[in-house]
Design a protein around this nucleic acid. Structure first.
Length: 566
DNA sequence: GCCGTTTTCGGCCCGACTGTTTTCAGTCG
């Protein structure tokens, strides 16, 4: 059993215990243990198997949880979990994912109505029976229905990093290439397409232990759900002479392909997943490589991230596609957290992980005090932290650390910390974490006011969206982007797979308005630094080149740019 | 449940909003 699976088991048990109304501190222990295990570099089952090792050496694992872990390793579950599952059906966990529905509501639904599925809950709301519960009224029924609608809208879609992880496991197994929205770097993925020319691909795919619920199984295509999360994966076997055409076809997008096929017809060709053929005589013109298909259509090869029919075909015809930024252009990461607030590693550990990635610099940007739940820094701690960073840099560790802060933007647009303290720091990214449903005009004014401070160098996760969970907050993006450009405040492209904020369309628009960008992972753990690839992909989808992105600069140039901003 | 003791108990981040209440419970971050 792998660590993420163990972690999920503990977290689900914690959710069920919360529904049961058990001691909140005990529940937190389960959640802490789940987080510790999820992020642990070694397999927990290996540690358990080794008599010279002690699993309680992991912070957050004590005697009780160690016993539970041994039980999980032995039989795939543990007593507390079994007990909880005897009390509440597993479908109750899904109800918790509806915005506005929490553990107390789930418990009341089960005790009063024996309801634990989304379908039944929706019916109760429609029949106005929720109001039979104490403290619930018509407005609550309406809110729950809205929450269910939102949940259904995002159900069945997966975050980019999840699809990428599945692809990384399956593609080598089937000698395949991932296509589809994953290859285009779209922020969420509905299903995963993998193309292969290996006739044995389908057999090996279906034999994988995490493959279940086979939806289709033929000579050239198999379709199945993968893993506990159930991402649908399609594996297709393609004749080698058609591989390029198939890769093009299955990468999409649909709009891009439609435009490409129209172009082919005008040129006397017909394009499908098997190749590019002459209309007269069906003679094969291209198909073994993607480059060949585009070339035969008079186009430069188009990077997958641009294939949305948003002008890329015209640019490819003029040979005027931008030289898109690449991950290797990135020289540092300017947004990350440590244990000082809600991160899980130390300054030293984050810096070392960044150095191993080949970065020249990072900024440590812990939260500010308004985020009390994250143990955010006040002025005194922020200034002390800057001194600590100076000491670190003086010790010569092969990477330059900038002292920074992710400073909360308060409701009225003021910054959470006093300006003189902020000006002691090298890099301040200002972010909204509260009051996210203000009226658009008020939110716009709030952001404009935050941009006024000379201490603010960047605007963090500028729209506040959380993928599959929460929409962007409403404000006049154009107005704010223009002001950011005028003041030289950079817009963050937050590379966390849960956010990917800004998205492509806004990046492109902001660039037209003169903005510059910083791509940042918002890492809370060393392993999150690897999420940079998703931010770069989002920047590519926004047509950015390396010169649009400030953290492609060498350290000296970046320092100079930061001074100019002040 | 874990942890760190002032070492076997007591503390463990908390403030604000919403919808329902008439003093508060539930949810969220």
């Amino acid at each position: 059993m792998e660590n993420p699976e163990i972690a999920r088991m503990l977290a689900e048990t914690a959710d069920l215990m919360e529904i049961a109304g058990e001691d909140p501190f005990r529940i937190r222990s389960y959640r802490n243990a789940a987080a510790a295990i999820e992020n642990h570099p070694e397999r927990i089952v290996d540690i358990l198997r080794d008599p010279s090792r002690d699993v309680t050496a992991i912070p957050g694992i004590g005697k009780g949880l160690a016993a539970a872990l041994r039980e999980i390793a032995e039989r795939g579950s543990f007593a507390r979990r079994d007990e909880m599952l005897a009390k509440y059906p597993p479908t109750a966990l899904e109800l918790l994912r509806i915005p506005g529905v929490g553990p107390k509501t789930v418990r009341a639904l089960w005790e009063h109505f024996r309801v634990s599925t989304i379908e039944d809950l929706a019916r109760l709301c429609e029949e106005h029976r929720i109001r039979e519960l104490r403290g619930m009224g018509a407005r609550t029924e309406q809110k729950i229905l809205e929450g269910i609608a939102h949940y259904r809208q995002v159900a069945g879609r997966f975050l980019l990093n999840h699809a990428a992880a599945v692809a990384a496991e399956l593609a080598p197994l089937v000698n395949g290439t991932p296509a589809g929205s994953l290859r285009r770097g779209k922020e969420t993925v509905g299903d995963l397409d993998i193309l292969s020319t290996d006739p044995g691909a389908i057999g090996r795919f279906l034999a994988h232990p995490s493959v279940h619920e086979v939806l289709a199984h033929g000579e050239t295509k198999a379709s199945a759900r993968f893993g506990a999360e159930g991402l649908q994966v399609d594996v297709r076997v393609i004749p080698p002479e058609s591989f390029g055409a198939a890769l093009q076809y299955f990468t999409g997008s649909r709009q891009h392909n439609v435009a490409l096929r129209q172009r082919a017809l005008k040129m006397g060709f017909t394009l499908n997943e098997y190749g590019l053929f002459t209309v007269e005589g069906q003679r094969r013109v291209a198909g073994d490589t993607e480059e060949g298909v585009y070339e035969a259509l008079g186009l430069a090869w188009i990077p997958p991230e641009l294939r949305e029919n948003h002008g890329e075909i015209e640019a490819a015809e003029r040979r005027a596609l931008p030289a898109l930024i690449e991950e290797r252009d990135i020289r540092g990461d300017l947004h990350m957290h440590t244990r000082e607030s809600d991160g899980r590693a130390t300054l030293e550990e984050m810096a070392e992980a960044a150095r191993q990635r080949g970065y020249a610099y990072i900024a440590i940007t812990d939260h500010s005090k308004a985020l009390a739940m994250a143990n955010g820094l006040d002025e005194k701690r922020a200034v002390a932290f800057a001194a600590e960073v100076r000491r670190f840099n003086a010790s010569g560790r092969g990477i330059e650390v900038l002292s920074g802060l992710e400073c909360d933007i308060l409701r009225d647009g003021r910054l959470d910390l006093a300006e003189d303290a902020l000006l002691e720091l090298d890099f301040v990214v200002a972010s909204v974490h509260s009051y996210m449903n203000l009226e658009p005009a008020e939110m716009t004014a709030r952001l404009l006011r935050a941009l006024e401070s000379p201490a603010v160098k960047a605007l963090g996760h500028p729209t506040g969206r959380v993928l599959l969970h929460r929409d962007a907050y409403a404000y006049e993006f154009e107005t704010v982007a223009k002001e950011a450009a005028r003041r030289g405040v950079w817009l963050e492209i937050n590379a966390s797979p849960e956010r990917l904020d800004l998205h492509a369309a806004l990046i492109r628009r902001a660039r037209e308005l003169g903005c510059r960008f910083v791509i940042s992972t918002d890492a809370h753990h060393p392993k999150h630094l690897a999420n940079m690839r998703y931010g770069v992909q989002m920047a590519r989808r926004g047509w950015l080149t390396a010169s649009d992105v400030v953290n492609t600069m060498e350290p000296g140039a970046l320092r100079a740019a930061l001074r100019r901003q002040a």
